[in-house]
Structure formats: C-alpha cells, structure tokens
Design a protein around this nucleic acid. Structure first.
Length: 283
DNA sequence: TTCCAGGGATATA
DNA sequence: TATATCCATGGA
C-alpha cells in the first residue's frame, strides 16, 4: 500500500484495503479503544491513534516504523483477496471484512492473550488484559503499555485469578515464570509444524492457541486456527461435518495453502458478526 | 436458568 | 489414538 510518513504520522488515502473497525473487530487484538472520532490501539510498548481526515487515514504515533510493520502496510491485500474470491464462501466473507489486515503483533503479548482466550469470550479477555496492563504495565498519560516479561516474572496464580482468568490462571503463572527471552529467537526460523510442536509443550497451549500465536505473533500464514466459529463454518460450508478440529485445520491448510491465515480471519469475522447481527434481530 | 465463549488437561479404554 | 468429563466466569 502506498503511504507517507510525516513526522509522527503515517498517512494514506482512504481505501478498501484498510478499515480500522474491521481490523479491531475481527478478533485478532484485544487492546483497542474506540470513540466517535478515533481509535486507539495499544500494542506492546507503543500507542497509536487512528482517524480519518479530509479523505485520508492518519495513524498518529511516536514510532511510525513500528506501525508500518504492525499494520502490514507492505503487503498487497487486493491481490490476496482476489485469489480468495475464487471460493464462493470466501467471496462473501472477503466482501464483508474487506478492510481487515493481519496484524504483526508482539510474540509475548500474543502468547498471553491467547492463553486467556481459550473457552472464553472476547469481552472478558479484554477486561483481563486491560487489568493486567494497569497493574503491571508502564503508565503513559492515561494509558498503560503491555507489561514486559520482566515485570510479570514471579506473578502467581492468585493474581491471575483476581483479574478474571478463571482456571487459566495456572497456565498464565507457569508461562510468565518459565518464559525465556530466547524462545522467540529460537523458534522464528523453524518450520511451522515444528514451532507448533514447541508451543504445545507449554501448559494450556493446544493446537488452536498455538496456531493463533503462529498467525498473529509470528507472522505465519500457513495455519488455520479452528475455534468454535470456524468449526461451525467448516461443518456447514466446507463439508467437514464430524471431523475433529485438528483434522479440519489440516484440510483447510491443504486447500488454502499460504493464504490460510488470511482466509481464516475473513471467515471468522464474517461468521461471528453475521451470527451476532441475526441474534440482535430476534430481540 | 441454561447455554455459550477464538479449548485444553486429564482419565479411561 | 479416540472419546468423555471437567474446568471459572460473565454475558445473553
């Protein structure tokens, strides 16, 4: 995507390949805050305010290079979408969530976020993560950055229970106390299947959580995380009814190849939002 | 009140 | 290897 960096801003024309509402609501990040005027995203130790003005999208931040990478601005999403459009269901999903981008999020933050996510709902995940940030993250103005691994060293199960993570508190405590900064460096050049095996050695990490960490925290697109929503779609629209979730993931990756991660996000967002809107109609 | 949420650990066969 | 049960908790 064509963009310009001006002082503390990234600027580009409003276009169909970037929609901040789609980006925030497609379930890949949890620490976003929206009002009528703008959207604030806190990612790792960086803060961005995103708004539109005079036909342009403006991403205001102190570190533009960080957010050029974060929003994956170097990737041509039009090309990806036109390939996915060859599938009928994907065409609807892509049309619905046309402004999605797969964010390149921090490994440690993604790991913690998706440990909390299992058998949980997005509202509660957001609440837990924001309480974690306000208790252990650096304060910048009225905001809190995501806590560093060092800041969370020694934090116990009781604390994680107190921020509403339920039975996952044990997983979180184990992770922050065993986390080694060299982990990401060790994994980042390994093949996806081997990385998945390594991630699944952590308590509380199964294939789905591992695949989310691979997709959102390691930039791997050859994964298709299968959660309850993807399970429904795979059963209803891809002829995979009755298959186990790992089997669904395997078949979906075989079909979508290196575009799997993108396809998964469009499908997840579409299915979840359509279901939510249908439920609102019934009220 | 019951069901569900970006599932996984554990026990059992 | 495959299936059944249990796990905290807030929202609908």
């Amino acid at each position: 995507m064509e963009y310009q960096i001006k002082h503390n801003k990234i600027v580009f024309p409003i276009n169909p390949d970037f929609n901040i509402y789609d980006i925030c609501h497609c379930g890949q990040l949890f620490r976003y805050f929206q009002n009528n005027q703008s959207t604030k995203i806190i990612a790792k130790n960086q803060i961005a305010n995103i708004f539109s003005d005079n036909g342009e999208i403006i991403i205001e931040c102190s570190n533009p290079e960080f957010f050029v990478d974060y929003f994956d601005l170097g990737t041509d999403y039009s090309a990806i979408k036109s390939k996915l459009n060859q599938n009928d269901f994907l065409q609807k999903a892509v049309n619905f969530g046309a402004g999605i981008r797969i964010l390149k999020q921090d490994f440690f933050e993604t790991f913690l976020s998706f440990l909390i996510s299992q058998n949980n709902n997005i509202k509660r995940i957001q609440g837990s993560l924001n309480r974690l940030a306000s208790d252990f993250g650096q304060k910048v103005g009225e905001d809190f950055l995501f806590p560093t691994p060092q800041a969370l060293k020694g934090v116990g199960e009781k604390y994680f229970e107190s921020i509403g993570t339920g039975y996952r508190a044990k997983y979180l405590s184990e992770f922050v106390n065993n986390y080694d900064e060299s982990l990401f460096e060790r994994l980042k050049t390994m093949p996806t299947n081997l990385v998945r095996d390594e991630l699944m050695k952590f308590l509380g990490v199964g294939q789905k959580v591992a695949d989310c960490i691979l997709l959102f925290g390691m930039g791997r697109k050859d994964v298709f995380p299968v959660d309850t929503w993807i399970d429904k779609v795979a059963s209803e629209h891809f002829g995979l009814s009755g298959a186990s979730r790992p089997d669904m993931a395997k078949k979906l990756v075989k079909y979508f190849g290196d575009l799997s991660g993108y396809a998964q996000q469009y499908v997840f967002y579409y299915k979840r939002e359509i279901t939510r809107k249908n439920q609102e109609k019934k009220l």
